[in-house]
């Protein structure tokens, strides 16, 4: 019985178990779906690039001409500003003290003018008295000359005192200019994009990174597209372009060409890491889009597709396919 039925049955069971193991053990591995659908180009042939949203005016990094401690920040991020509006103020105590000094100096100079004018008046009277004497023996020639000179000197002194007033006033104006320079103002109408300073912080003069304040004109958004230099030859100004928001491919905007910066620059890495070396250069092309069409923020990255002629040079297409085998 064992050999006759049990063995074949066992064998059959073994085989079926094997089949079961094959079937259950080789279920296809599930495919992890993308969390967000990747953007797909609406063109058959195109250049792809990463784009960075920026303001129409580009992003203006506000600096200060004078270093100093910030005493007041007059705007908040997102606030609209008019040209001339104060953005922030620096510590002006020293300049104000100087202003007082200069103002006193002006007063003193003015007093000097009056004094000089009085001296001149006195000298003029004395000179006149002497000149009115007809008898030449009554007053010596020497005395007359002396009075004339005194008068001339007094007139010069007045001129000098007047000039000193002018100088003092100019110095006062200079100090006032300095005072005004401690108040940093917006030079265009726009929106405050970023505020990096706070009262009490020391603001360096010159170019700072990060900038003290970022300002931009947002009436229209621009997108700065990096095109790899290898693809630059395929770029056409009149070509259609579309930008997709990362993370939701349904959010997209038609782009219209603004201008191209005809200068190929080293690609700026978006990691912001300064130690990163760069050996690729990119052509930067600017497109504009309507902010109402796509809610994008300045500084946001977008995937940009620009329609372009088919890229395969004929010679490349004729090349044999790359060897997919491992080289020994």
């Amino acid at each position: 019985m064992f050999t006759r039925y049990l063995l074949p049955l066992l064998a059959l069971a073994g085989f079926l178990f094997g089949v079961y193991m094959v079937v259950t053990g080789n279920k296809p591995i599930p495919v992890a779906e993308a969390v967000a659908q990747p953007a797909q180009a609406p063109f058959a042939s195109f250049i792809a690039g990463s784009g960075l949203v920026e303001a129409r005016s580009e992003n203006i990094a506000i600096g200060t001409p004078l270093p100093g401690v910030v005493t007041r920040v007059a705007v908040r991020a997102g606030e609209r500003v008019k040209a001339g509006q104060i953005l922030f103020e620096l510590d002006d105590r020293e300049a104000r003290a100087e202003e007082g000094v200069r103002r006193a100096a002006t007063a003193r100079a003015r007093a000097g003018v009056e004094e000089a004018a009085a001296s001149l008046k006195e000298a003029a009277i004395l000179l006149q008295l002497a000149e009115n004497v007809d008898d030449r023996r009554a007053i010596s020639v020497e005395e007359l000359e002396r009075r004339r000179n005194a008068h001339a000197i007094a007139r010069s002194r007045l001129d000098s005192a007047k000039a000193q007033v002018g100088q003092a006033e100019a110095e006062l104006t200079a100090v006032r200019t300095t005072l005004d320079r401690l108040r940093v103002r917006a030079l265009i109408d726009g929106e405050v994009l970023k505020v990096n300073i706070h009262p009490g912080e020391f603001a360096m003069a010159g170019i700072t990174n990060p900038p003290l304040l970022v300002l931009g004109n947002l009436t229209e958004l621009r997108i700065r597209v990096d095109i790899d230099e290898n693809d630059a030859w395929r770029f056409r100004k009149e070509a259609k372009a579309v930008a997709y928001l990362r993370g939701n491919r349904d959010l997209k905007a038609e782009l219209s060409f603004a201008y191209v910066e005809p200068y190929v620059i080293p690609k700026r890495s978006l990691t912001g890491d300064s130690t990163e070396r760069v050996d690729t250069r990119v052509l930067q092309v600017l497109y504009r889009f309507d902010p109402s069409q796509l809610a994008a923020y300045v500084g946001q990255q977008m995937d940009v597709f620009i329609e372009a002629p088919d890229m395969i040079p004929q010679t490349a297409a004729d090349r044999p396919p790359p060897d997919t085998r491992v080289l020994p």
Binding site: A41, A44, S45, F46, I47, A48, G49, S50, D226, I227, D228, N230, D231, K267, S269, T280, V282, D303, F305, A308, D310, M311, I312
Partner: peptide, 11 residues
């Protein structure tokens, strides 16, 4: 990193 965009640009 730019190779990514070159690949994206292939028809």
């Amino acid at each position: 990193d730019t190779e990514l965009y070159r690949v994206r640009g292939v028809a």
